[in-house]
């Protein structure tokens, strides 16, 4: 009797929470529609900026979500690995290849590809090494020990960046023109934004294909869902975890270059961006690849709308709003937008 009553109570209160959540969401959607009606051109242009930034956040968020999915560890160092990769990319582009704003397009493309050919394997190795040295010995230790170590690794990587590059921002010339690639009325998508999607979308497709269909990718999913059962199936757990860090490090390197093409970067860029990306991963449902990108897109949009539309609190409030949304999502949907509630816990 009492348990039935308690269950009923729980169902009622959770549906109440759901109702409030849906109400807030509906209010937000109505506000968006209203804003769109007010000035469609501006709305779409701002939305495009949001989507572009969201795509970059998404690349970084994937690294958090991949590692969390498999180790239930928030790899705080990921953001800093991303920033260092961007810094190294700037050195390669400027000092080694000597690319300049007026360099021939073909040479620029070759130079960028050559940059990735170096940074991707380099940071894949660095990331896997971080796992071997800092996290692997703590695999059987309490979760908190690994978490603190991750915070420590974050500081170490950040300090390496600081020691190598100092406090100045690094940047590269605008290789990719800011001229419009697509123009519909007054709504324009510039080439540099198109370029970001040309990199991010294939990376996402390849990653999804890898995790869904390859033997190694299926092994990763198995380890993520039940590590010990995976070992019992003959999956080499250590190797699988290393592969995950290799993937995450590669993504960080791609993200570092993409970010560098768009913004300035310095030793502590990874802290702020890492926080946003991690938030995006939680928002989307940590451990879920599509969720990470979706969450990142949402944050990118919210940020752009807040900073680009009238009648919003403005850029001073962006951080508060982003984290306010995170808290709201965790209250109304603790597993995140796409996270699944399973008996074993998502």
């Amino acid at each position: 009797m009492t348990t039935a009553a308690a269950t009923l109570q729980r169902i009622r209160s959770s549906s109440l929470i759901d109702a409030i959540g849906l109400l807030i969401l509906a209010a937000f959607v109505v506000w968006l529609i209203y804003k769109f009606g007010e000035n469609p051109t501006r709305f779409l242009n701002v939305g495009i900026i949001g989507a572009t930034n969201g795509a970059i956040y998404g690349l970084v968020a994937l690294g958090y979500t991949l590692v969390y999915g498999i180790l239930q560890l928030i790899n705080f160092a990921h953001g800093d690995v991303f920033a260092l990769s961007g810094l190294v990319a700037s050195t390669l582009i400027i000092s080694v290849w000597g690319l300049e704003a007026d360099t021939n397009v073909i040479l620029v493309v070759l130079g960028l590809l050559a940059t990735l050919a170096i940074t991707v394997p380099l940071f894949a190795t660095i990331n896997a090494t971080i796992e071997r040295v800092a996290y692997k010995p703590l695999r059987r230790a309490p979760r908190l020990a690994a978490l603190i170590t991750a915070v420590g690794m974050s500081f170490i990587v950040q300090n390496v960046s600081l020691a190598l590059y100092g406090v100045d921002f690094e940047s590269v010339p605008n290789f990719i023109p800011r001229t419009s690639a697509i123009e519909i009325g007054d709504v324009a998508i510039q080439w540099n934004k198109v370029a970001i999607f040309l990199i991010v979308i294939p990376v996402l497709l390849v990653l999804t294909w890898f995790v869904r269909t390859t033997r190694q990718g299926k092994g990763m999913r198995a380890v993520a869902q039940d590590t010990e059962a995976a070992a019992m199936m003959g999956i080499d757990v250590n190797r699988t975890i290393s592969v995950t860090f290799v993937l995450a490090g590669s993504l960080a390197a791609v993200a570092g270059l993409v970010y560098l093409l768009q913004f300035n970067i310095r030793y502590d860029t990874g802290f702020e961006l890492g926080l946003i990306a991690f938030t995006a991963a939680v928002l989307g449902g940590i451990g879920n690849l599509t969720g990470a990108v979706l969450g990142a897109m949402m944050i990118g949009m919210v940020q752009a709308f807040n900073e680009g539309l009238d009648g919003t609190p403005g850029s001073d409030w962006t951080r508060s709003i982003v984290f306010g949304i995170l808290i709201a999502v965790l209250v109304f949907r603790p597993q995140g937008i796409l996270g699944e509630r399973t008996p074993e816990g998502a």
């Binding site: 039940d226 059962a229 003959g234």
Partner: peptide
């Protein structure tokens, strides 16, 4: 496992978010 010992563990320990087919596939992993 590769050497030829396989186990159906206590409490089943299936991969909950994989399909039946995928779970069976995991059994043949090595």
């Amino acid at each position: 496992v590769k050497g030829g010992i396989s186990q159906s563990p206590e409490g089943r320990r299936l991969f909950p978010r994989m399909s039946v087919t995928e779970n069976l596939e995991m059994g043949a992993f090595q």
